[in-house]
């Protein structure tokens, strides 16, 4: 079962590798990576609205490295509490903040300090810092109260979790009854080999 990482995989090393990769994305979004980033990718392959993204701070859009589009799954209503697990530089979170508006709340959690800093700065630049709350943390231990969230989003992040049962359990814990999960993530058609799942470099690829 792929929900937990192999026993021989050092979780601390894995987290550090992932943190280093996304720290580099935060500082050098135009560098060389195994995955796409930025506005053209988001609009062309993931169906984001270009005008909407062009209205956001570049600092939140350029490092975007999601793999789907949670905003196409369902609608965030005014006044709702939204959580973005692994919010990165904040692109999806800022879109959510605009939708939930001044009576709502948009919480972003990320384990990479540079991404948290970018997201905070972008929220201020976008004028939604009264709505947005960025918190340092991991998917397996969300710094969020029980049953406090109407909609949880995540985009390209939970595949990086070494303990997916714990991560999804946390998402379930923080959602209100009836709350919704809008998840975009990497999937495979069959379970990968143990060798592949034990390769730290391949996790962050």
């Amino acid at each position: 079962m792929a929900a937990t990482c192999p026993d021989n995989l050092d979780v601390d090393i894995l987290r550090e590798k992932i943190r280093a990769t996304y720290d580099r994305v935060a500082h050098q979004p135009h560098g060389e990576y195994h995955f796409h980033r930025g506005i053209d990718y988001a609009c062309t392959l993931l169906g984001y609205d270009r005008a909407e993204l062009e209205s956001l701070p570049l600092s939140s859009v350029e490092p975007f490295a999601g793999v789907g589009n949670p905003h196409r799954i369902g609608t965030i209503q005014p006044g709702q509490s939204v959580l973005d697990v692994g919010c990165g530089a904040g692109m999806d979170l800022l879109l959510a903040a605009r939708r939930t508006g001044p009576t709502g709340r948009a919480i972003g959690v990320d384990m990479t300090p540079a991404m948290c800093e970018r997201a905070r700065a972008a929220a201020t630049e976008a004028g939604v810092d009264e709505i947005v709350d960025i918190r340092a943390g991991t998917a397996e231990k969300l710094p969020v109260d029980d049953a406090s969230i109407d909609a949880v989003m995540s985009n390209g992040v939970l595949n990086l979790s070494p303990d997916k049962k714990a991560a999804f359990g946390e998402v379930f814990r923080v959602l209100k009854p009836g709350g919704q999960l809008f998840l975009a993530d990497v999937v495979v058609q069959r379970e990968l080999s143990l060798d592949a799942r034990s390769d730290v470099d391949l996790w962050a690829a």
């Binding site: 789907g68 196409r72 799954i73 009854p177 009836g178 709350g179 998840l183 975009a184 999937v187 495979v188």
Partner: peptide, 13 residues
């Protein structure tokens, strides 16, 4: 080789 793709996934509590 790995048959990797990405999806939008919905669920509710």
């Amino acid at each position: 080789d790995l048959l990797v793709g990405s999806v939008n996934f919905y669920a509710r509590k």
